[in-house]
């Protein structure tokens, strides 16, 4: 059987992430689901500040570059103005869980009908690999040079677990470290977007993604490290399932 390869139009040019970066995989999954739903001309993507800034020029739909951490509030405003459009916030863990923790929690708390995607790469990548609230215990970053001391800095934050305790529509955590997990993540992305389109309320999907550049590993070792260290702590799966219709 002949196999044809197609690329979603929204990501039909080379991305600008580092070779081996996990961001690109999530970009593609989101683009596929948007197009499946016929929303390629009806989506506004609010970008946080981080490596996702690269998407201003490579994600070919409407993007609003908002301030560091404020994507959930901006996406809320978009949804108020255009309830007929898909309003997505795409952020890094530093953006959504550190500087923007308040905005993220409050949008979830209100069960605002938006979809939030968070790339959890266990560090502030864009600024050169500083500690984030998702940095693993003992992980070396430029601001935790001796390894993260969780006694002084807190344990890695599990934001999806927190918001799944709220009255929200859908919450999941996936990963891009294997083909199998990528296919599961695709399902989570689909559920999150379709929850918004059905007016069910707030949806959030965290995607564990490798950052070979700032982890100081090649891609293969990055994926191995994720499987051995990150995934056991940040458990994968649906934390809040959509209500059966």
């Amino acid at each position: 059987m002949a196999v044809t390869k197609t690329t979603p139009k929204l990501v039909d040019i080379p991305n600008k992430f580092c070779p081996g970066c996990g961001h690109g995989i999530l970009n593609r999954l989101i683009a596929e689901v948007i197009e499946e739903n016929g929303y390629e001309q009806k989506t506004i993507m609010t970008l946080g500040v981080g490596c996702d800034c690269n998407m201003n020029s490579t994600f070919l739909g409407d993007t609003i570059q908002c301030a560091h951490g404020r994507a959930a509030s901006t996406a809320t405003g978009v949804k108020v103005a255009r309830p007929d459009l898909l309003s997505i916030a795409y952020q890094g863990d530093g953006d959504a869980y550190v500087i923007g923790l308040s905005e993220t929690l409050n949008a979830a708390y209100r069960n605002t009908n938006i979809t939030v995607f968070v790339v959890n790469n266990n560090n502030f990548a864009m600024t050169g690999g500083q500690m984030s609230w998702t940095t693993m215990a003992g992980q070396v970053t430029t601001t935790s040079p001796a390894g993260r001391d969780t006694k002084a800095t807190g344990n890695p934050i599990k934001l999806p677990e927190i918001v799944s305790g709220f009255d929200v529509a859908y919450v999941a955590r996936g990963s891009v470290h294997s083909a199998e997990e990528i296919m599961k993540l695709r399902k989570y992305v689909k559920n999150a977007i379709e929850a918004q389109l059905a007016g069910e309320g707030y949806s959030l999907v965290e995607a564990l993604c490798q950052c070979p550049t700032n982890w100081g590993m090649d891609t293969r070792h990055s994926l191995e490290w994720m499987e051995a260290e990150v995934v056991p702590y940040f458990e994968l799966g649906e934390l809040k399932e959509r209500k059966a219709k």
Binding site: I44, T46, I64, C66, A67, R70, S73, T74, A75, T76, G77, V78, K79, V80, A81, R82, L85, S87, S102, E103, N106
Partner: peptide
């Protein structure tokens, strides 16, 4: 019309940024 009590003033101004980006008087 829509009136939102935001969690703080910063969040409120970004809601306005988002909505006016789409052309809504706010």
């Amino acid at each position: 019309r829509t009136c939102i009590q935001a969690e703080n003033e910063m969040s409120a101004v970004y809601m306005i940024l988002g909505a006016y980006s789409c052309g809504m008087r706010c």
